[in-house]
């Protein structure tokens, strides 16, 4: 679109300002991780590297990160499978109840987390009689992660059309072969984008997790919440947040590169 130079610059400036504000609280977190104040007060009274040292020696923190990664990986994998299946069904077939199903998929994310949380808690504990564990967290997370995969995959399927799949079938390829060699490669970047978002959702989820985690299952957000109630642990939490932000740039960048190069090829 032929935007005037003025409006392009204005847009750019607005974007820069908003993103700048977005990073102010993160900057506060960064500064706090070096602050001598244990209660995160501003301005920081002094500089110390103590928290960085302690964070990397804190077995609880490292264990919480690893628990969170496990939960997020497993629930992302489950949601990738279920999300792909359901988007293939909804995009490739017209059938009675299709709208109801697409509503069903978005419900776990559209309804407030506390409702999902207490519903699953009640279901697992009093109805099914299964003790809460890491698996109940995985089940809960996978349920609300399906939607992110579903949306990315179905948008891609819609754009792809069915021509290539039909050609593949005409050439004698079976259903599975067609999926493996024709459909799947075209879905790869959509799966990556959906999976990444699902991973992020699961990794930072706290409300549903509170209600579905068994004893001894400490995901990172729960660890952080518990540490807000402990003497002199708050700055360690800041360190963890800073490290996570830094690490997260890598997968996001790779995902961007992959989907970017794919777009250029087309």
């Amino acid at each position: 679109m032929r935007l005037s130079r003025f409006s392009r610059t204005t847009l750019g400036v607005i974007t820069a300002i908003i993103l700048g504000i977005v990073y102010v609280p993160l900057l506060v977190v960064l500064v706090n991780s070096f602050s001598t104040s244990t209660s995160l007060t501003w301005p920081p009274p002094g500089f110390t590297l103590e928290w960085w040292g302690r964070a990397f020696r804190s077995a609880g923190a490292l264990e919480a990160v690893s628990t969170s990664v496990q939960v997020a990986v497993i629930s992302t994998l489950i949601s990738l499978v279920l999300g792909t299946l359901i988007s293939l069904a909804l995009q490739r077939f017209a059938f009675f109840g299709r709208d109801a199903i697409s509503l069903l998929i978005i419900l776990p994310i559209a309804l407030p987390g506390i409702i999902t949380g207490i519903a699953l808690n009640n279901f697992f504990r009093t109805i099914m009689g299964v003790p809460l564990s890491i698996w109940t967290v995985v089940i809960a997370h996978a349920t609300f992660c399906i939607v992110t995969v579903f949306n990315n995959v179905i948008a891609r399927l819609r754009r792809l059309g069915t021509n290539l799949e039909e050609a593949s079938a005409d050439l004698g390829a079976g259903v599975w072969t067609t999926f493996r060699l024709v459909t799947f490669p075209q879905l790869r970047s959509a799966l990556l984008a959906g999976g990444l978002l699902a991973f992020a959702l699961s990794f930072d989820e706290i409300i549903v997790t509170t209600f579905t985690a068994g004893s001894g299952v400490t995901t990172l957000p729960i660890f952080i919440l518990n540490n807000m109630f402990r003497p002199s642990q708050a700055p360690i939490v800041s360190v963890i947040a800073v490290v996570l932000v830094l690490i997260s740039i890598i997968p996001i960048y790779i995902a961007q590169r992959l989907s970017g190069s794919e777009q250029q090829r087309r």
């Binding site: 974007t15 993103l19 977005v22 977190v29 706090n32 990172l220 939490v237 740039i249």
Partner: peptide, 26 residues
Amino acid sequence: QRILVIAVLTPLWASYLVKAYAWRSV
């Protein structure tokens, strides 16, 4: 575009609680 997407996504990884407490401080 790529840089901006990263810039938008990055804050998602600083935990919810950490960001809320950061705003408390701000």
